[in-house]
Nucleic acid binder design. Structure first.
Length: 301
DNA sequence: GCCCAGGTACGTC
DNA sequence: GACGTACATGGG
């Protein structure tokens, strides 16, 4: 499946404010709710303070346009286009998914503004280790504290001090009191060990991005706290490996209910079935399915 | 109190 | 290799 390149024409529209007109297949609200980023703060509808690695911006979406504030044109092009995967034609991806099956067609209509972010690799490794068997509000709290204790101060916005995501070395420099205050529970030892392995170059994660998905899986799983699911999230949400298919409790439900997998099938089998069925962009299909399933279950509650 | 959360590590068979 | 179970913590 070929994907067209979208032409991106940033316009300056104020002091440190840039704008992309006619942003298609894009919704800040849906990306926020899609379970990928843990460092977005919702200010109001379609208006977010976004922090990623050592960068931050204020993003506003209105009348079909995306505005990025408190940033530079250079940064819009070098950081945020890449982060939001803005040059990719999601319309074409969705059209192809919609042809494949009815349920996926519904899911792409429901989550029509979903994007697969290309997040910083180290940040994604750490945040998704924290995410395992954990609740999103609690994950966000832990991540915020980690940045506050170990990250460099980047600036201030609306009275809030902003921090970069820390490096492995900076994490390892924290006191035990700080580690405890992050309230990672049993994940604390995973993070310490993973940070150590990365700081000591036992695992060169930049190299993993060059491998194919299978090989990347194997390497990532050498990190402490990284199993099959977290490895898939890292591959998909930071390395652009679109054939990675993370299977969590929600995806288990969908695959059993909608795609005929037996009740006793395990995550590994479901993952293979997903890639088999949805192909080279299975991970993107997964994200539409995940979002549709979880959002609709919220409403029934 | 119970169940669950974008699961993983570890021991057992 | 497949399976069961313990695991910190807080929200519903």
């Amino acid at each position: 499946m070929a994907t067209n390149q979208i032409f991106l024409d940033w316009k300056r529209c104020g002091k440190k404010k840039y704008c992309l007109m006619n942003v298609q297949d894009f919704s800040l609200e849906q990306i926020y709710a899609s379970g990928q980023p843990f460092r977005w703060k919702r200010i109001e509808k379609n208006h977010f303070l976004i922090q990623s690695a050592g960068f931050w911006t204020v993003a506003i979406q209105k009348e079909g346009a995306l505005y990025l504030c408190e940033t530079t044109l250079k940064e819009c092009r070098s950081v945020w286009e890449n982060y939001f995967d803005l040059a990719r034609d999601y319309g074409m991806l969705k059209a192809n998914f919609a042809k494949a099956d009815e349920h996926l067609e519904k899911a792409t209509r429901f989550g029509d503004g979903i994007r697969i972010l290309r997040q910083d690799i180290f940040e994604t490794i750490i945040t998704f280790i924290i995410s395992s068997n954990n609740h999103i509000p609690r994950i966000k709290g832990s991540v915020a504290k980690l940045c506050e204790f170990a990250g460099e101060k980047l600036g201030e916005y609306d009275g809030e001090i902003l921090y970069a995501f820390p490096s492995a070395e900076q994490m390892l420099a924290m006191s035990q009191e700080q580690w405890s205050a992050i309230k990672l529970g049993y994940r604390e030892k995973y993070l310490k060990e993973t940070a150590r392995m990365i700081a000591e170059r036992e695992i060169a994660f930049e190299e993993i991005a060059k491998l194919d998905t299978q090989e990347g899986q194997k390497k990532l799983r050498l990190l402490s706290g990284v199993g099959e699911k977290v490895a898939d999230c890292i591959l998909l949400f930071s390395m652009g490996k679109y054939d990675a298919f993370p299977v969590d409790t929600w995806m288990e439900k969908v695959m059993k209910k909608q795609y005929g997998l037996s009740q006793n099938s395990k995550a590994t089998q479901i993952r293979f079935a997903g890639v088999e069925r949805f192909g080279a962009f299975a991970g993107i299909a997964q994200q539409y399915l995940f979002f549709y399933e979880r959002e609709n279950s919220k409403r029934r509650d």
